[in-house]
Amino acid sequence: MKLQIGRATTTRVSTENLVRRTSTHEGRLHVITATGASDLAEWIAHNKAEVETLHAQTGALLFRGFSVPTEAEFAPVVQAFSGGTPYMIEDQNSHNQFVTDGEDVWFHNDYCDRAKWPRYLIFWCELTNASGGETPFVDTTRVYQQLPARIRDRFEAEGWILQRRFHSGIGVDAKGYFKTEDTGEILRQLALLDAFDVRWDGDVLTGFSVRFAPSFEHPALGIKVWGNNITFSNIAMVEQTIREQLLSDYATDELPVNTFWGDGAPISARDMATLRDIYLTNEVSFEWQEGDVLLIDNIRCVHGRRPILAPQRVNVGVCEFYHRVNALALS
């Protein structure tokens, strides 16, 4: 038999055969795992409908085993969800003003206290030693359903108040908070927020308050969410030693950050404990692996961070912004 030598051909192996779907925590976290080094941005582009369907079911979706070694591979993943609109990539610890690496960061919605609220947070684990630093999250549709009526109804009737005061050497200043050096832009942001009790020292903003709605319909999904930082920004959630120091240094009206009922009354320790327990009962958590990408619906879900016990670097992409979805409309 004569051996025939022909032109070499290339066979493209479908990445679909190298990807499996599972779920954990009683179906509250879907996981898409690549068994080969697949390009995540490319896979999402070819499977966007499935990604959106799975994500809409729980508000969170974990991608594992894909090839995301550097920011060069991560940025296109963020772009896949930005829809061509502006996006940011940050260190996940950039908002933690009173928390060290060795402490918990409480559950919160990123930027829910600004005029523009991003829907998507895309966390990417660049480096981990699998020792702490988890990013737990909670679907707030569950929180809303489980809240006692006396708490939910009062907040929905009155809203909740965020108080911010800017002090030298404690956290960010107003320009850092609003991410601008332009005082005119700060004024514009305050107007968009309907801020009140706005305080100035010359041309330096030293404080303001805003009243927000605690719950509202998700702008893309139409479901009721409990979207707020009532617990996260309350003085009761600050670590005890730091809390005692802040209460010693500042009057209640001058604390760097605090939250209140919509009529300005303090929120009792009992009610804060009730809120805290409901979040903890519904949390979902997992250990990071290098290259993991976690897609969170930041309007539907709150997230936190467990104490970091070994070197770790988790970055987060922020995109698809909505305007004042939690604006309060009082009758």
Rank of each mutant, 00 (worst) to 15 (best):
Thr35Ser: 03
Ile299Ala: 01
Asp104Asn: 14
Glu244Phe: 10
Ile5His: 10
Thr206Asn: 08
Leu280Met: 08
Phe260Lys: 08
Glu103Pro: 03
Thr35Met: 02
Gly83Asp: 00
Asp91Thr: 09
Cys319Phe: 05
Gly317Asn: 10
Leu18Lys: 07
Glu16Pro: 06
Gly36Phe: 04
Leu40Thr: 03
Ile122Arg: 02
His25Gly: 02
Gln289Asn: 10
Tyr144Glu: 14
Gly222Met: 12
Thr281Trp: 00
Arg119His: 00
Glu156Cys: 13
Gln146Thr: 09
Leu54His: 07
Val316Phe: 07
Ile161Lys: 11
Asn258Arg: 12
Ala45Met: 00
Asp113Lys: 04
Asp263Tyr: 01
Thr206Trp: 12
Met1Tyr: 00
Ala41Pro: 06
Ser268Val: 06
Lys2Asn: 11
Gly171Leu: 07
Pro136Asp: 01
Arg211Ser: 12
Ala265Phe: 02
Asp197Cys: 09
Asp113Ile: 11
Leu247Gln: 15
Glu126Tyr: 02
Pro76Trp: 02
Asp110Gln: 13
Leu29Tyr: 10
Leu294Gly: 10
Thr180Asn: 08
Glu42Pro: 00
Ile32Gln: 08
Asn109Lys: 08
Glu320Gln: 10
Phe107Tyr: 15
Arg211Phe: 10
Ala115Arg: 06
Val204Ala: 07
Arg28Ala: 13
Val325Asn: 00
Ile267Glu: 06
Leu330Phe: 10
Thr53Tyr: 01
His167Asp: 06
Phe260Ser: 04
Leu61Cys: 06
Ala41Ser: 15
Gly262Leu: 13
Thr9His: 03
His108Met: 11
Ala80Ser: 15
Ala41Tyr: 03
Val13Lys: 02
Leu192Cys: 05
Tyr111Ala: 14
Ala149Ser: 15
Gln146Ser: 15
Met88Ala: 08
Ala236Glu: 07
Glu244Trp: 08
Asn93Ile: 01
Asn109Pro: 03
Glu287Cys: 07
Arg114Ala: 12
Phe63Ile: 05
Asp253Glu: 15
Phe166Asp: 00
Val325Pro: 09
Thr58His: 14
Gly102Val: 05
Gly159Cys: 07
Gly304Gln: 07
Glu90Asp: 13
Gly102Ala: 06
Thr58Lys: 06
Ser215Arg: 09
Trp43Gln: 00
Asn258Leu: 14
Glu287Ala: 14
Arg165Asp: 09
Phe216Tyr: 15
Ala236Tyr: 04
Ala195Val: 10
Glu158Thr: 15
Arg164His: 09
Phe178Gly: 07
Leu3Ser: 03
Val78Met: 05
